[in-house]
Amino acid sequence: MTPLPIFSKYRQVLSIGVQSTLAYRINFLCRSLFALVPLTATILLWRAIYAGAGGDVAGYALEQMISYYLVIAIIDALTAVNEDDWQIVADIRDGRISQFLLKPIDYLGYRLTLYFSGRLVYWLISLLPIGCFVFFYRENLQLPANPTVWSSVVLSVALTALLQFFISFSMALLAFWVLEIDTFIFILFAIEVIAGGHLFPLDILPAAILNALAWTPFPYLLYFPASIFLERTTGTELLLGLGIQIGWTLIAFGVACFVWRRGVRQYEAAGG
């Protein structure tokens, strides 16, 4: 097959994905608006802590701490996997996946395209609430001056999106073997929340814990691109981090392909 039909095929998927997610625009808007409430609360909580401490806390000035939360809010809107894993689980449970086995389309490619279309719509819808929020706190946010930093951020955010997707995809495919997959997804999400840097910047943890975490995939799901943006990860540390992130993304891709192949063999087309 020439590359052109493949491109056109996934362009169609992208268009379908955008249209179907646009049906949930109010849902997305509510979600992004509600998400701003705990974010504001966290920023105010840190303000109270800084007011009591009277100086830097854990090597962060107040402005840097607020910047961290603004940056992760933007990266999260760009990369978080919201509904995709649940949809994949439903496809397997209800036997809908049978049709993909019969069609000349790769399921991973199909889901990845839908994920991108979902993120595109979510990002466009949340642009206004998040944009207003960042604008309100703009005095705290320092943009990197160095173009190398910007390109590293773009690369790292792209890798974060792929890593997030491949991990969620592999996890959701466990539905081939286990019926009640929801708990496993929530367990993984809980670990991601604390070890990925959703609650606090990971470099306020003791150095030994941070160094150990750096070899796991979790910091690369959110914290790492934010730390590049804030120029807290630079030089060889940055190169090493990007290397590890690329490594984990490739491993996650390999695992996703492997689990898919094994899962299809296991598949019984229940209800399909």
Partner: peptide
């Protein structure tokens, strides 16, 4: 609107406060 589930789950965010 039957798509109001998002609003219900959104409230879950407020629990954090």
């Amino acid at each position: 609107s039957v798509k109001a589930q998002g609003i219900v789950w959104g409230y879950y965010n407020l629990f954090n406060i």
